[in-house]
Amino acid sequence: MTATLNPPEAERSEKPASRRGDRIFAGLARGAGLTILLALAAVFIFLFVEGWNGLNAEEATYRPATDFLGYIGPLILSTILAAIIALIVAVPFAIGIALFISHYAPRRLATPVAYVIDLLAAVPSVVFGLWGGRYLADLLQPVHVWLHDRLGFLPFFGPDPASPNGRSLFTAGIVLAIMILPIITAISREVFAQTPRLHEEAALALGATRWEMIRYAVFPYARSGMVSGVMLGLGRALGETMAVAMVLAVTPVATLNVIGTASPATIASNIALNYKEATPSRQSLLIATGLVLFAVTFAINFFARWIVGRNERKQAKA
């Protein structure tokens, strides 16, 4: 929370604003801030009001399951599996790229690389979905077969046959990984660059190689920043809709197999896929699943930002 570190105007504003213009303007500004808080509260309230019916509707609403938990269970499983795949793939790359920008790349290369990674964040998710469904899935299909042949004894890669077109949770996870790469990279890169010069030199002066210096000085210092970057990435992976909706071939049968012919949709993509033919009660159900998604991602983001903020406060003191 950089905002709290450097308040230029705090004291002045404590005094009563005598003029009418000042009062009105200050009220407007404050009102705008309150609007944001209200909007956030409204999101919770409206989703709750509209989704409430979805929690206890008639059994038929939950087809093919019979109650809310049965309906959302497979969706949660897929959501988590896809997010885990995304994190497993994205985190090492993101940290590698962040290190590249902060410690390895020649300075002339570091800035353009950072810019290219930001460009990756600017590509709309629907385009990622289009590309993932039409191209990446084909490219990764042989990987599915390979994983199934070699590691088919694991529940994640068998026993059902591998997807013939690559439109699996695995491919969706890879697309998600590419999409969350920029945020994890951005946060890690920032904390890596903030490592105190003194600690880096302490390691180098002991005769550490560059990698040993990073292990001794950079990683311990950046640990909590990296954790919050990963959590922000996780929040995005859980909530991303279109890329998954466009890549994944969907059946409502829960399975751990991430390379099979079909998996349940994720919570978010399920909403996008089903909103159209929804009856009012079905609509409530979808909103209820959205409420669950919101609660989870809100908690994750809240916690991640809290870690970031705590770090900044600590540094402000030091």
Binding site: P196, H199, A202, L206, G207, A208, Y216
Partner: peptide, 30 residues
């Protein structure tokens, strides 16, 4: 240069023990 720094040690302006390590581990770092 890594070997050079191993045989020619250095102490800096501001004390800079590794913040995440204990006293024991700091001494042993090298």
């Amino acid at each position: 240069p890594v070997a050079v720094r191993r045989s020619i040690g250095m102490v800096f302006q501001r004390p800079n023990p590794f913040p995440t390590m204990s006293i024991y581990d700091n001494v042993l770092a090298g």
